[in-house]
Computed example of a mutant assay.
Amino acid sequence: MHVADLKGLKVHYTDEGDPNGAPIVFVNSLGTDLRLWDKVVPLLPAGLRIIRYDKRGHGLSGVTPGPYKMGTLVGDLERLLDHLGVRDCLLVGLSIGGMIAQGLAVKRMDMVRAVVLSNTGAKIGTADMWADRIAAVKTGGIEALADAIMERWFSASFRETEEFHAWRNMLVRQPPEGYAGCSAAIAGTDFYTPTSGLRLPALGIAGSEDGSTPPDLVRETVDLIPGSKFALIRGAGHLPCVEKPGEYARILNGFIAETGHA
């Protein structure tokens, strides 16, 4: 296990593949840890340096008192990549991870050369909606929201599989303080203006059955970046890298090839 001490926050991460290869960095969704990408990583081209991490309040990383700001979460990733000496990475972010990716791409042009915005938006939901979820978590824990979240995360067919139960367990075992803290960060974020100023290769990926960030939201967000591309994965919900890893990897690998990131 690798743990970086970043100004008092201990961040769990993995650093795999070729240490001298072109870096690709993955940022997880709300309520998941770095295992979110387990099915995709083995399908990536050889020669890449592959970095994953557990964001603040998730997985094996440290939990700090909430609420969190999006700038704090962006800063966590910035410090981790500085710690690892990463520049010119391909940054892949899903859901809140896609928001963190937008924020870092705006802040550190030297650090991000291309971005994949997966199942995300420049703005997700409303402040009132997130306030209700935060209150529910504080009252009844993540379990109180779990069934509704699972319906947004996964297609009906996937919810009938045995694997589904493992993902539900991953969700409810996240620290409630971290889940609520990151929910507050999403509630306070509107990246429409800063994201519209980005000028770099960008790809949006959406799932046709996504109940959290529908395809139109993903397309609207990535369309803010001139020259961007968009891909829809049919039959998948909010986590297409879990439900359709082969198709997800095919789309991602095509973008890697197109951008010369190898």
Rank of each mutant, 00 (worst) to 15 (best):
V112R: 05
V116L: 12
R56K: 12
T221G: 01
V112K: 06
H165T: 14
A262L: 15
T221W: 02
L44Q: 10
S157I: 05
V115R: 00
N28A: 15
I225W: 07
P240A: 04
V63C: 03
T161L: 13
N119L: 09
I205S: 01
G8I: 01
D190W: 09
F164E: 14
T72G: 09
G103K: 02
H83P: 05
Q174A: 02
P215N: 14
A105D: 02
L145A: 09
G188N: 11
A187I: 02
P245V: 03
V25I: 10
S29H: 06
D147I: 02
Y13A: 08
G197I: 00
N28Y: 00
A46G: 10
A46K: 15
V41T: 11
S196K: 13
L217M: 15
E258N: 11
N253K: 11
K138I: 02
A146Q: 12
L145F: 11
V137F: 10
I256G: 03
G21V: 10
T126K: 13
T221L: 03
A101E: 07
K55F: 10
L171W: 01
A131D: 15
L217V: 14
A236Y: 04
P194Y: 06
T221C: 13
L171Y: 01
E258Q: 14
G197F: 01
F26V: 13
A101W: 00
K55L: 11
S228V: 09
D132P: 00
L73K: 02
M170A: 10
F164G: 01
A156Y: 03
D82I: 08
K55E: 06
G59A: 11
P45K: 08
D33C: 07
L171R: 02
A131E: 14
G197L: 15
L6C: 04
T189N: 13
A22M: 15
A105P: 02
P175M: 08
A231W: 08
V11T: 14
K69C: 09
V222L: 08
D15R: 12
V137E: 11
Y192H: 11
R87A: 10
A262Y: 12
G8M: 08
E160K: 15
C241S: 11
L90I: 05
P23T: 12
T139I: 09
N119T: 14
P194W: 04
E151G: 06
V27Q: 06
V27T: 15
W153L: 04
L252S: 07
S61I: 01
V106E: 13
L232D: 05
Y13L: 10
W130D: 01
I51M: 04
N253G: 09
Q174D: 08
T221K: 01
S228T: 11
L34G: 02
Y53T: 03
V242W: 10
